[in-house]
């Protein structure tokens, strides 16, 4: 390793260094804490050839690299968040040394404390909703007119009908997503809708109409899951997928208030 920097995974409050023993960060480097003002940053050393500006630009385009760093980042954030209030940092936040980390912890102390208060005792859960677009179509009548009118006209009519169906279906999907999200948001502390995922990336079937994420109190997880199950049974055309708990990535942001 040539020059090294400190990769910062998360900010925690009250994490015992002993909790990190036996666990490794990126490239197997040992995890350690940098403390300041009652908060800790969970860090490990990384090679600046890999995590410097140039290295990051190059490596972020490399799926294998991105996956291994993201997986390790998530594992560290989980390890911490299972024990103490944890605000996970975005991928690839790198400092040149412990003094820089401490300076930043001081600068962000109040905002970080508010974020940690907000997520303490809570987890992030995701709910995705899919509708099967094809299942809504009723193609029974659409092929018949072809014999009576010109093939070209029949084709255009068919195309127009298909477009109208898609539009109606997209509208119905959007309304359904809004309804489900509103119901889930009503029972949770905070909620947000992420952009629906691209099928080319996930390979999911049907149309993802909702990619919601919810901050749920530990005591409310069972009720949240019950609510998802109830919504699923009320809307048989929709497939709901619940996932979690995640470290509170979406809800630990430092809003400068």
């Amino acid at each position: 390793m040539s020059e090294t920097g400190l990769y910062c995974y998360a900010i925690t409050r009250g994490l015992d260094p002993a909790a990190l023993e036996g666990s490794a960060g990126i490239a197997g480097a040992p995890l350690r804490l940098v403390e300041h003002g009652g908060l800790e940053a969970v860090v490990s050393e990384v090679d600046l050839a890999e995590f410097g500006e140039e290295g990051l630009r190059r490596n972020l385009e490399d799926l294998g690299w991105l996956e291994s760093v993201a997986t390790t980042h998530d594992a560290v954030a989980r390890l911490a968040s299972e024990q103490v209030p944890t605000a996970p940092l975005r991928l690839a936040t790198v400092f040149l040394g412990a003094d820089s980390v401490r300076a930043r912890l001081g600068e962000w102390h109040d905002a970080a404390s508010r974020a940690l208060d907000r997520i303490e005792g809570r987890g992030e859960w995701s709910v995705k909703a899919y509708v099967d677009v094809d299942a809504q179509e009723t193609p029974a009548a659409e092929q018949e007119p072809a014999e009576e009118m010109g093939a070209g006209r029949a084709y255009l009519l068919k195309r127009r009908a298909a477009t109208q169906r898609r539009e109606a279906s997209a509208q119905a999907g959007a309304e359904l997503a809004e309804e489900i999200h509103a119901a889930l948001a009503g029972g949770t502390v905070l909620s947000r809708r992420l952009a629906p995922q691209d099928r080319r990336l996930t390979g999911h079937t049907g149309e993802m109409v909702l990619n919601g994420t919810y901050l749920v109190d530990a005591s409310g997880v069972a009720a949240f899951k019950d609510l998802v199950a109830r919504l699923a049974s009320e809307h048989p055309r929709v497939r709901l997928e619940v996932g979690g708990p995640w470290p509170p990535y979406t809800f630990a942001s430092l809003d400068p208030q």
Binding site: L56, P88, A92, T93, A112
Partner: peptide
């Protein structure tokens, strides 16, 4: 699984605390 990686990147790249490190500023 691809879906798990996309879920993770949804959060790790789109959310999480944005603290400017010495180097991520450049990102």
């Amino acid at each position: 699984q691809p879906v798990a990686l996309v879920d993770l990147l949804d959060r790790l790249l789109g959310a999480g605390v944005v603290i400017s490190g010495d180097l991520t500023i450049s990102l």
